[in-house]
Amino acid sequence: MSKMNVNGKVIVVAGGGKNLGGLLCRNFAAQGAKLAIHYNSESSKAAAEETLAEVKKLGAEAFLFPADLTKVENITKLFDETIARFGGIDIAINTVGKVLKKPFSETTEEEYDSMSDINSKVAYFFIQEAGKKMNDKGKICTIVTSLLAAYTGLYSTYAGMKAPVDHFTRAASKEFGARGISVTAVAPGPMDTPFFYGQESPEAVAYHKSAAALGGLTNIEDIAPLVEFLVTDGWWITGQTIFANGGYTTR
């Protein structure tokens, strides 16, 4: 059986400007994919522009799409612009997320709403739009968190708002399956990126590093190959949330 590749495929990456999303974009570009690279705001613009330059240097067709995806109209625009530019969409990957580490009793309504919008609402409507707009035999993958299987406090809104994506993935895979579309989620352990360190004390960082059976934090280089597999040769895996964390949590 010949190995699948993404040469000529059109790939949308939400949160594609930096960290894991940026690495995925560079890897896909090196394989000849066409890319829609979303980034959220002015604070991530420079990193996104750097990723775009690297992707184009690899010979890929690509464009940047800056938008707040908590406004569902912007998710629609992202998919519509990609189709207008490239004629269709084959793969859709959502790496968007926000961490809040805070005691349950101190979480405000505004924080709850923001965490719900970014971690749940964006994921739901991204999957919905992908299912409506992408080509048959498409692939959808969402990044969640290994805290879904952790017995811990302080991450009630982060893990709590990522938890519904586990079911969104199952439901969408069932509904889209007749069109050959696979839907998966990947749950990394704490990743060695700025996304992680902003919330953690040095003591907590040391704990997280020690908690994985294989030792250390998860690297984006540990996760990218799994996502790439799930949206190519691993498409037969569908409706699943895959925990990839070096033995940090499991279920």
Rank of each mutant, 00 (worst) to 15 (best):
176 F>N: 00
176 F>G: 01
80 D>A: 10
111 E>T: 08
81 E>Y: 07
5 N>T: 15
85 R>Y: 08
64 L>T: 04
27 N>Q: 15
249 T>Y: 06
147 L>H: 11
181 I>V: 10
50 E>H: 05
198 G>S: 14
155 Y>E: 10
158 Y>Q: 02
221 E>R: 05
15 G>K: 09
30 A>Y: 09
121 K>Y: 03
90 D>N: 12
187 A>C: 04
205 V>D: 06
15 G>W: 11
152 T>N: 10
197 Y>I: 03
59 G>V: 12
206 A>K: 13
249 T>M: 03
120 S>W: 02
238 T>I: 05
228 E>I: 13
17 G>M: 13
31 Q>G: 06
82 T>V: 09
44 S>G: 11
21 G>S: 13
107 T>K: 12
31 Q>F: 02
40 N>R: 11
241 T>Q: 05
92 A>L: 06
82 T>Y: 09
241 T>V: 13
58 L>C: 04
123 A>E: 03
130 A>L: 01
177 G>N: 00
67 A>R: 02
140 I>L: 05
168 F>C: 00
22 G>A: 11
10 V>F: 12
48 A>V: 09
166 D>S: 01
10 V>I: 15
190 P>I: 06
227 V>P: 08
112 Y>T: 06
92 A>Y: 09
19 N>W: 14
175 E>I: 00
114 S>N: 12
48 A>P: 07
11 I>Y: 13
14 A>Q: 10
